[in-house]
Nucleic acid binder design. Structure first.
Lengths: 342, 342
DNA sequence: ATGAAAGCGCTAACAT
DNA sequence: ATGTTAGCGCTTTCAT
């Protein structure tokens, strides 16, 4: 492979000069600059990343910690982040992590060996050693979709958003509302909390029996959860699902049971993933500002890396209730889940 | 950051010895080995990737060329590939590329600067210079979901699969079948070709007017395409969509027009993406062996990188027709249509 | 078995 | 403005 020395030799200049040109530095004779630029173009020279990386002591890559079982929202988000990062000149490295300690430890080791320029976390890690390391080496970090102490975060007000979702249902006359939630992420807890808050604000009693927790936030688990809910009792007219995927699974089961959405049961999701607007019925949901979140995440990290320590603060982005077709006014008088219309 | 020298100094040995231990080489005193291993564990030493990379002249990373507008199948596939690659000890680098030449050229430049160990292509590139470079530097490459001359490929028999899909429709009694296809990928052409083949085999005339080509394979474009089809005429009882996402968009439009799937119009997709089994109705489709494709792609590349030049051949994996709920026997009692054989 | 020494390709002082 | 020099952290001959 052609190196900086080759260029230098061919033109009878020193490697430093070539380096200066390649990096757009000042203090180089315009004539020589042109020659060198020309030579670079001709030979197709491109700098060796590893070498630069070593001497500059940075890798030009940022890591993304992402759950092993990422849901569709996380998938879309990461994809947007990746694009922005790339536009800033960074590479991205994945760090898939599961919920167990072993996985977290392995992740930490990988992070150590990479000399990352920065780290983005889409997944919460429990191991304190992880955060210790991060702050010890002063690695720029930002979290997205959740908060961690001392680390700038990009997120929406999850609890408030969940409250709005449930309040929408309440506004439609629903009182008996069930919830499909998941475990393992803070947002699951927050959304569940918002659910209870909204209900309590409407004068309903807090009833833990109304929510079922499943292991992952995927459609398949929405099916499991919905079946469980149906098994417990059928005394509800609406369901709040902690993610759109869960909602999609839930609607699937409802339909299989001969129940219609929204006529018999209203369903509301959370995230507004791409597919939600194509479902039958189109899903009513809370939209997280996907694009903006991705952009901000990359931007805030980039600022940190570039030494702008200023913005050590959280960025709370606005969400939006998107009313589509999966929710409608409550029709039941007293007993819920009756005959489908006609 | 702690380096190999630090370890060496603390133990009064030479860096070489530490290196030998770190890399599990022979010829080192068992006692010393233990000491060194212990020290490594204690200090949390991890080798500097950039330095290794420079001296070893390889990056331990493989690139993935993927379309800028990847569809859900490609997304899932890449995710699986990434996982396998990681298990082989590689990093992955994205190379998003659009359809224009400028984008391809930029991609080539990035590829050059990375000293990649290997490259996986999920997207076709037209620029011959790209392939020239690849073969000149003897970079191990494998393509997935399409073929390129001289490069091992992992794929299904697209045309045959499309034929099977359409033949399924024909077996159900459908004769007037429309197709929703896309441009920009070979698989689009192949699936379209399979569509015509099946029709011709059933004695139907080749009618280009039956297929509409949209720009991307996403659900949104399925909507555009379906609307276009409906505008042309409504003389069809079934639709073959080149991807599940296209099918999902098509079903959406059909429903909006008051048409029922499959009662009024049967729809069949291609890929069997995750969500297809949750749609209402559940989508009949052709399943590509996602997991196996990802695994094989990573494996074949790894073998190449490891010097196993043996398998320079294509791997054709089996697909499967998955009959679900979006297709049913043709009900229109018009001219050519007969009852399906039971 | 082990250490000394020579780079890998590049950048950044430090001269000039 | 430009060249010289000294590494960055690691692996690998080549001696010993």
């Amino acid at each position: 492979m052609i190196s900086i020395k080759d260029i230098a030799r061919q033109l009878g200049v020193s490697p430093s000069t070539v380096s200066r040109v390649a990096n757009g530095k000042k203090h180089v004779n315009p004539v020589k600059r042109e020659q060198i630029l020309k030579m670079i173009a001709e030979t197709g020279y491109v700098p060796n990343k590893a070498a630069r990386s070593m001497v500059l002591r940075r890798s030009f890559t940022v890591g993304i910690v992402i759950p092993d079982t990422f849901n569709m929202f996380q998938r879309q988000l990461f994809s947007i982040i990746e694009r922005h990062l790339e536009s800033f000149g960074y590479h991205t490295l994945f760090f898939f992590v599961q919920f167990d300690g072993a996985s977290e430890e392995e992740c930490l080791n990988r992070v150590k060996s990479e000399k990352l320029d920065g780290l983005i976390m889409l997944q919460e890690i429990k191991d304190p050693a992880f955060y210790d390391y991060l702050s010890r080496v002063e690695l720029p970090v930002v979290t997205a979709t959740f908060c961690a102490p001392g680390i700038p975060a990009i997120h929406v007000n999850e609890e408030q958003a969940a409250m709005d979702a449930v309040t929408h249902l309440i506004g439609l006359g629903h009182r008996k509302i069930a919830m499909l939630s998941g475990s393992g992420f803070t947002f699951g807890r927050q959304r569940t909390e918002g659910f209870f808050q909204a209900l309590e604000a409407a004068g309903e009693e807090r009833d833990e029996g109304r929510v079922v927790f499943v292991r992952h936030y995927a459609a398949e688990f929405g099916m499991y959860g919905m079946r469980e809910l149906l098994l417990r009792n059928r005394d509800f007219s609406a369901v709040f699902a902690a993610t759109d995927e869960l909602a999609i699974g839930a609607i699937r089961v409802l339909r299989d049971e001969g129940l219609h959405v929204p006529e018999d049961i209203s369903v509301i999701g959370f995230d507004d993933i791409e597919i939600s607007n194509f479902m039958i019925p189109r899903l009513t949901t809370i939209r997280q500002p996907l694009w903006e979140m991705g952009e901000q995440t990359a931007l805030v990290l980039h600022r940190h890396i570039s030494g702008n320590k200023g913005g050590r603060t959280n960025t709370v982005l606005p969400y939006r209730l998107i009313i589509r077709e999966s929710t409608c006014p409550c029709r039941t008088r007293r007993k819920t889940v009756r005959m489908p219309k006609k």
